[in-house]
Design a protein around this nucleic acid. Sequence first.
DNA 1: GGGCTAGTTGCGACTGGGTCGCAATCAATA
DNA 2: TATTGATTGCGACCCAGTCGCAACTAGCCC
Lengths: 140, 140
Amino acid sequence: MTAQRRAVIEVIQTANEHLDAAALLDLARNREPGIDRATVYRTIELLKRLRLIDELDLMHLQGEKHYYEVKTRRDHVHLACFRCGRIEEYSSPLFEQLKAEITEQAGFEIRVTRLEVGGNCHACAEAEKKAQREASAKPR
Amino acid sequence: MTAQRRAVIEVIQTANEHLDAAALLDLARNREPGIDRATVYRTIELLKRLRLIDELDLMHLQGEKHYYEVKTRRDHVHLACFRCGRIEEYSSPLFEQLKAEITEQAGFEIRVTRLEVGGNCHACAEAEKKAQREASAKPR
DNA sequence: GGGCTAGTTGCGACTGGGTCGCAATCAATA
DNA sequence: TATTGATTGCGACCCAGTCGCAACTAGCCC
């Protein structure tokens, strides 16, 4: 357990949004100035292997980066809005049921799950509907 | 509609496994020798936007590549085995229910979903159990 | 406390998937 | 058939992530 690892872990734990590796590096440097990019990646790798964090793609809304979050008791869905870029989290007993079904029916031993949904969030869906109504009310 | 696009589309449609961009390029070159990498990427982009294909990460089992498949009537889960690397597909009414619930409860307008599960497939789970039994039966 | 060693770090070079700008070309329409 | 907006090929480029290696250090044992 080195100072560098502690810094990375603390940053992930205290973050209240999804961080990518670059953001993680910046924040970790506040605590441990000299820390290197490679070290951050290696620590992420380690934490993934230990199942302490989950890796997310968030529908590649912002390029190919990966995001990280501490693994919670309950898996959740990430809802990524293509329009405003917001990420919502959603969890449901149905998801748990689905995982149980997969384990049972397919005999698959689940270690990680990643359910990402892309589309329009509630606010953006409403906004688009409104825009459409206005466009058809006054056709050119 | 150019010959290059036709080539890419035909390759994806007739493929019976998940292709990454590089494989797609190779196969497309069989049909359309001069076709360029950038063109393939641009066509993939286009097909994604038109919702004709889905993009998969397959749990980054083989690095950061993306894989593509033609969008089917029914969404399915991809089960990626960390041990043997096989990809299984699984679909269930529960998944459909979950999507309906998200639409309703969160007011989220779903356009794409990606559910990937990593772990051990049935065969590999059995193999590991067997290996463990043998290891504990004859401790050093 | 001091020395030993396996494991960790920093560095720099590298890989590989994917993107971009631009000039040349082409498909589709009039 | 002439026109033109879209598409292509090319080369340079970007950026996330990886690797090999020498230097360093945490943690243990004495």
